[in-house]
Design a protein around this nucleic acid. Structure first.
Lengths: 349, 349
DNA sequence: CGACATTATGACACCGGTGTCAGACTGTAT
DNA sequence: ATACAGTCTGACACCGGTGTCATAATGTCG
């Protein structure tokens, strides 16, 4: 009655040696079966596999790592004020890692830290990573990328703007998304559309801004610099920008912030000042962060497939590690407009 | 001019053998110095340390792991709808890990998943974790804890209610926090205070509820079950509870939600129904999540030191791993009331 | 049937550290 | 000088796998 439910077996350690002995073959043959190597007779392979089952054998990843000089660990670098973005990145990366029996090591650090390269160098020598996923803003750091190349560490870039280079890169179409969102506002009758930029180190910042401008141009609306505020993706920067924008005379009828946190800051200030959203002011964000639907009115925004981008990036990275290919893998995913209550046709008051 | 800025040295691999040879001692002596073992003459120690510097030697954690049957990896289990809670947990855990040259492996999984034990078993055999940090709701899962004990895996519990057992456990005083917050509302003149419970699997749920009840009792306010709604910490559940509460006749003048996400849901619905917060309705949450200050009005809430709890838990865990002690480490940290705009004296209308 | 290519297998060194143990070298008490 | 405890050091096996290479077994072809 004791040990109930806990699959017993003998709790003795099962190593490659015990499997070999039990199956009556050499360690090396067991190793071959383990790694799906050729040149093992079907009969032998069968026999060994059966012993795996019977003894519930799991190879020791540490020993494998030592022999092959690998760690089976992928590192994930990030420096991002948005917690939700980080968790989405992690969740995509984890999915890919688990699928291929890798572990994920998360490493927050600062792009503008006193010495990023030293920091990463340290990370690499102490943790022996097999590869690194770069999330924004690291995906566009030429300095870091040059370092990784020189050290010959495989890497994949998520949501990067650098095109046509020879590395793995997955991104979504930010410019297109920003274009559609701006057009959505224009179609609602808005012409005075303020814009809050993101952090200058992120390539998304330039892309989203460019989408905004192109939509204006297409619809023959003059671009006015006074309607543009500099943010950095943080809620705080959004609050500062909101102040500048809502103080404008005449006040814009719509605000497009480069992410949802900054948009939420605009909404907060507008509400404090008793400016009615969306009746007197339309507000839109970008990312479809949780906060976009946790506030009232819900934010119109652009959803990007962050998990999927990261998952694909890590999968390709792992593929590349075990079998370096020539052709760099690059892919662009679609961003999608989500309309909620925060945007509305311009009133004729 | 080439290689500028990249500290060169010869890029050859530096192993314990090269260090030993260069210093003119045996591998074993180098190993002794590395591990700060006794019985090394000061002169020798000095000499070896100098060679470490000179060759920039970093021991290979994988080889060490194999020899000592350790992985230098701590696992972090979580199953929590709050992203901000998760990132705070991670950040505390990371800090402790980095300090002691451990890695952190994050592992989201479901408490009520089809087979939690199998899942964790799998994790343990494939990743060879040295220890596990249990965050809510796992910190209170007797089944899981029994399993870890039987497998002899060191663990630490964060924010758990189980007291007086023999394991490492760090928590904050949730009951006291809830008590203070409720008292704050009572002092503002509220007597009809609705309460939204958290997820029944989390011990915090019971503690916070109990703090609420005790404050009512202390101030001679009758406890009424109709004012209590069942939530589960998710925004969605908060929205459902909000509906039930705001439909009550007469409507309560204050709502205390067991976390900030649910409080935000109450605020959203109240705003939609044009109930003025805080003039007509005071709202309070718990956790001091980012959203509490990202919305208007900002939420009165209780701040708990999540990072610090986790950091301490992991530090104690690592201490325990390298040197098992008898005395279990247990500690209770303070939770702190933060007042913002969402609570106000009851109006006499 | 011999010459040779191909497949299947195992012996053994090796990855880069640590544990065990024996031996050399002190210092101190007899 | 002898005995003995304590300090310092290195040889060697070992952790649990993989890489290299030799060799045995089998298949193919002229």
């Amino acid at each position: 009655m004791s040990d109930a439910g806990l699959k017993g077996k003998s709790m003795k350690k099962v190593t490659i040696n015990s499997v070999a002995e039990y199956a009556g073959v050499s360690k090396k043959t067991v190793s071959r079966v383990l790694n799906n190597e050729p040149n093992v007779s079907p009969a032998t392979r069968e026999k060994v596999l059966k012993v795996f089952e019977e003894l519930n054998y799991k190879p020791n990843p540490i020993a494998r790592g030592l022999a092959q000089n690998r760690s089976f660990i992928i590192g994930c670098l990030y420096d991002n004020p948005s917690k939700s973005y980080i968790t989405r990145v992690q969740s995509g990366a984890l999915e890919a890692c688990q699928k291929h029996s890798y572990n994920l090591l998360i490493h927050p650090c600062e792009l503008r830290g006193q010495d990023l390269i030293d920091n990463v160098d340290q990370l690499l020598t102490t943790s022996r990573l097999d590869g690194i996923v770069l999330t924004p803003p690291f995906s566009d750091s030429n300095e870091l990328i040059a370092f990784l190349k020189q050290r010959n560490i495989p890497y994949a870039r998520v949501a990067s703007a650098i095109e046509g280079d020879d590395s793995i890169s997955i991104r979504s179409n930010d410019e297109q998304g920003a274009f559609e969102l701006t057009e959505h506002l224009i179609n609602l009758g808005h012409t005075e559309i303020a814009f809050i930029k993101g952090h200058p180190d992120h390539s998304a910042t330039e892309n989203r801004f460019s989408g905004y401008q192109k939509a204006l141009t297409k619809h023959g609306i003059e671009y006015r610099e006074r309607l543009v505020a500099e943010g950095n993706f943080s809620y705080h920067s959004g609050a500062d920008s909101a102040k500048a924008i809502l103080d404008l005379e005449p006040r814009p009828t719509a605000v497009f912030a480069s992410n949802d946190y900054m948009a939420a800051a605009v909404l907060k200030l507008a509400t404090q000042r008793e400016i009615k959203v969306p009746e007197q002011l339309s507000i839109a964000g970008f990312d479809n962060a949780p906060i976009a639907r946790h506030i009232w009115p819900g934010l119109t925004t652009i959803a990007q497939p962050v998990e999927e981008m990261t998952r694909i990036a890590v999968e390709e990275l792992i593929k590349h590690i075990s079998q370096p290919q020539e052709a760099p893998f690059q892919q662009v995913l679609e961003a999608k407009l989500i309309t909620r209550e925060s945007t509305k046709a311009r009133s004729n008051s």
